[in-house]
Design a binder for these strands. Structure first.
Lengths: 189, 189, 189, 189
DNA sequence: TATGAATGAGCATTCATTCAT
DNA sequence: AATGAATGAATGCTCATTCAT
């Protein structure tokens, strides 16, 4: 494992537990066992570590949402997308934190934020398709996409909360609630 | 306006624009025009400013959700609760930030988090009532509450995003999506 | 008990446990329960508290050494002086600290140090008398006085050291060692 | 000379003239010409500078007392020990200050105090030998050792006091007084 | 590639003191 | 006599970063 990889991994762990702002370079250096100068040999500055980490983590974000999602069945596709996103966040806590902090955090440059934004297009396209198919009511697709995304996030937050044990049943309920919100009145559920 | 109030107000403004971690005491001092020592005369330390601010802002959070919500009409009550929460967050950006950061931020002590948690009880009670009235499907109420809350948050985030202009129509769409997700199959919408 | 007295007493206690330099005004204020301004109403500044305390404690220092010391019996007088000093320090830990710190501490102005010096004259006079009476060898009286004083201090330090329990026997041994050091060769012990 | 050595040396000089508590880091930085961060690169905190300094200075303390002291002649050994200690303190003012402050100062951790304590064992052993040889009266050896030590300290204090000029004659007198105090009645002086 | 010494701006906090009430 | 708000210099310490090896 290269020194560079060690630094990235260590930073990942620290940010996951403490947040971006609370994570200092000296902490990274101390925890990683890598020398001061070595960090600066591989990264121009602290922000570059964050950025590189961010790119690493969001790289597969675009593909992850649509993975194994059957394009011919809207409901099934919805469920798979929902679960893809949910487990991606559950298994990549940092990606989740980043995704949550992106909007606000001044540490992430706007260009990166915009880049991340594009991954959402797949979700938006999905809703456009659903509306066209007259399965969904013709709501604003940005609103739909954000609510969809927010629903997943809500469940991840429950899952993250150590005091509550989330069962599969609850996840299915959440997906159902999420799905039914978008339906047309006469859609056979 | 007392020096203490000035410090609180200034801190509020700085945190709203920069986040908690990025706001330094020297910034507060410079912007407020209050002397270094004066801040420490009124507050034990920096955290106490944050905490006091948080208490100030969440004090009315409990009452805000249920304000003017008609108890006899579930749908109307839902709409009013939804909008109450939405505009509360829109008008109290810091309260919003806090509410978003509570789960994660180590800067907010656990006691405060627990205190905040109780405000959610009203929402949960509402869903219990709806299930009893056979209007809502009998989902887990914690899940329902979190999804409801998350939906509001999603819209606030769209609203916050400067590049997108949120119209009343979109808000109504969001409320509708949110509401319909919880309904029983045979409920007249 | 007047506020002024409370401040002095509190300062005394703090200095005894922490030393002069480590004792801050805010500590005094917090511990005494007296208001900030009240301290400055009674004392010009922090040094004046120390000085006043010092004067209070050294006031009776001069009389204490010779108290109940029979002037006609050199040996008895020696013992009484020795014990007077010993128990004075044991019972007035601050006076002891002061007396130990005087030489070095820049916090005590030189004028005060000189003033304290005069109290030692009684001891020096005693040794002059003893030399004249041919009981003591004619050593330099300053040396004698300092060694005498130092011997008492040594025992106080043992006494102060919590891990060692000083018995009366040991004190008597110390006095004897102290006394015999000064004697002429042919003096009947 | 390394920056670390410069910091230690500068701190030594400052403490010698002003005392530990009165010596601030900014003074050390200003006087040493070393940057703020450099100090903290070499030392974990201010206390570590003091501790390291203390260890440096007391390292040879153990050997110093017994240096060149003939083991076969009790009186000569006494004189050499006495002078060794005296000149060690005179030439190492900081060691003297430390040794004086050890008992009281909360700035010196207990572990260091205990470590210093062991150096005194040689002195105590000497007195045990003297008692066994029936040259000294069988006083408590801790008392003897403390009085011996205190006598040296008394003379160092006279020496330190700028207003008094200590001559060799006075030192010899002090040694004689010190020595005679311990003797048995019938010992040929 | 890797190291760690060196830097100085900036941090939260404590300090002794002043002043209006 | 007593209070406590207000002050700003100073403290110990952390920070991200530079540089010579």
């Amino acid at each position: 494992m290269s020194k560079k990889a060690i630094v990235l991994q260590t930073t990942l762990e620290l940010i996951t537990t403490q947040g971006i702002a609370a994570t200092s370079l000296s902490q990274i250096i101390k925890k990683s066992g890598v020398a001061n100068g070595t960090v600066y040999h591989h990264f121009k500055n602290k922000d570059e570590i964050i950025t590189e980490l961010y790119l690493m983590l969001t790289q597969d974000f675009g593909t992850v949402v649509m993975r194994n999602a059957p394009e011919d069945d809207l409901k099934k596709q919805f469920t798979v997308m929902w679960l893809n996103l949910f487990y991606y966040f559950v298994n990549n806590p940092l990606a989740f934190i980043f995704s949550e902090q992106i909007a606000r955090s001044p540490e992430i440059p706007q260009t990166l934020k915009d880049e991340a934004r594009q991954y959402y297009n797949d979700i938006q396209d999905y809703f456009k398709k659903g509306i066209k198919a007259k399965v969904f009511k013709s709501y604003n697709t940005l609103v739909m996409e954000e609510l969809f995304f927010g629903n997943v996030v809500s469940l991840v937050k429950i899952h993250e909360n150590e005091t509550v044990k989330l069962k599969e049943k609850h996840i299915n309920q959440a997906i159902e609630i999420s799905w039914r919100g978008f339906l047309k009145d006469d859609t056979i559920l």
